[in-house]
Design a protein around this nucleic acid. Structure first.
Lengths: 224, 224
DNA sequence: CCACTTAGAGTGAAGATGACTCTAAGTCCT
DNA sequence: AGGACTTAGAGTCATCTTCACTCTAAGTGG
């Protein structure tokens, strides 16, 4: 029962899948991107991994995820939600359980992003072979995001405070990777009462000015 | 930064919300019950708490939850799913993060249940004041169960291998605490293709014998 | 053999969904 | 100035789903 007491402890890490919408380099259309960190020590030295770190004794889980977000992108204010906890015995040479969050970064924040040490962004559906079980985690996060956007108003989290219906639709299209009918999308979203008109219109477009909307309730309040 | 190194470590526990359907003592209708364990040491000595324990270095998260199930009820084979991880700094005097699973116990299993040490069952919607943040956890589990049963075939997990549509409906009614139209329930469930007829009927009823069904796919495969 | 109970099929109104058309309100070009 | 162009946003209609309800089927118990 008692071999080496040192390696017997289970350690706890918090990792964060940070999603932002940026143009696809080939098609030019908006797609999901995420930042990865190159590992600078064993195990998996040289491989890409999700940003994260050990949970400090004085910080909450979400706070740890927020610190990771800050360290990786320089950003602070983003939607954050717990995704899942991964704890298979063999997922790492040393026993570590990872509690994974996801962050959805707004475009106005994303514009100010400054990559941290050894950080590089990748198209979320086309990441390289990752360290540990991080491939599984990214896939799981994508599945969940695509499922959740259809029944929950998280799409707001990818937008600034005020936005047009076209922008909201573009978020859905980018996440789901398919185009949606503008008229039907409008009807459905308005029926859901999750957004409300600000009363103003966006000006400066080369066509009819679209109305601006804001979120009627913060997405946090409409968790699953 | 460094005060007492001993208390600085974060420890990890796995707790399990074990749900079973049993008759309500007052109304006699099926309701959700769960077992709690009386704490025999500080903190919260004497209070009721969710069953669980520290994560052992050699066991997976789900395995730990399964051990808790075994220790608490004597049962082994039940549906098990990860619920959420709770890690607020102040949820316990010593810093502990709890990864919470839920188990759904089938009636044939439940009949064989043997309560462990200091274990007592309670109506899930009427639990006493619990230790730590376990009140929140129970509430969260109930919310999730009620939400999930409407779009996922987890209700099977509360039934034996073969069951009638009336039994499946009773599970839904017990969880949601409202009665459902038998005819519409039948149509919806059959349209979902999640169950298939065994070809046999249940006999011995004092009325028309109902057809028996089985799950078409294990609920595990239809996670969210 | 008739009353009673639950199984399971069917019906019609109301609501949601999806493909599509049409008008509104701007800018850009000539 | 005026027409072409673009996107906003309302409206139409057929189809599908949902829900409350009715009706017949098939057993048991008196």
């Amino acid at each position: 029962m008692t071999t080496t007491q040192v390696d017997q402890r289970v350690s706890l890490a918090v990792s964060t899948v940070i999603f932002a919408l940026r143009p696809d380099p080939s098609t030019g259309r908006q797609t999901l991107w995420l930042p990865l960190v190159r590992r600078i020590r064993e195990p998996y030295e040289g491989k890409w991994a999700l940003p994260g770190g050990p949970l400090e004794a004085h910080e909450d889980l979400a706070a740890s995820a927020r610190h990771t977000l800050e360290r990786t992108t320089g950003l602070g204010d983003s939607y954050l939600e717990q995704l899942y906890s991964f704890g298979a015995v063999d997922r790492s040479p040393d026993r570590v359980v990872s509690i994974v969050y996801w962050a959805l970064v707004r475009p106005d924040e994303d514009a100010r992003a400054i990559d941290g040490e050894n950080v590089e962004w990748f198209v979320a559906d086309d990441v390289p072979d990752l360290a540990f079980d991080h491939d599984d985690i990214v896939r799981y996060a994508l599945d969940r995001l695509r499922a959740k956007i259809t029944y929950s108003p998280i799409a707001h989290a990818f937008l600034a405070d005020e936005f047009t219906l076209a922008e909201l639709r573009e978020v859905h299209e980018a996440v789901l990777r398919k185009s949606l009918d503008p008229a039907n999308f409008r009807r459905q979203v308005l029926a859901g009462r999750t957004i409300e008109p600000t009363g103003t219109c966006l000006t400066g477009t080369s066509h009819r000015p679209p109305a601006l909307y804001r979120a009627a309730a913060r997405p946090e309040e409409i968790a699953r």
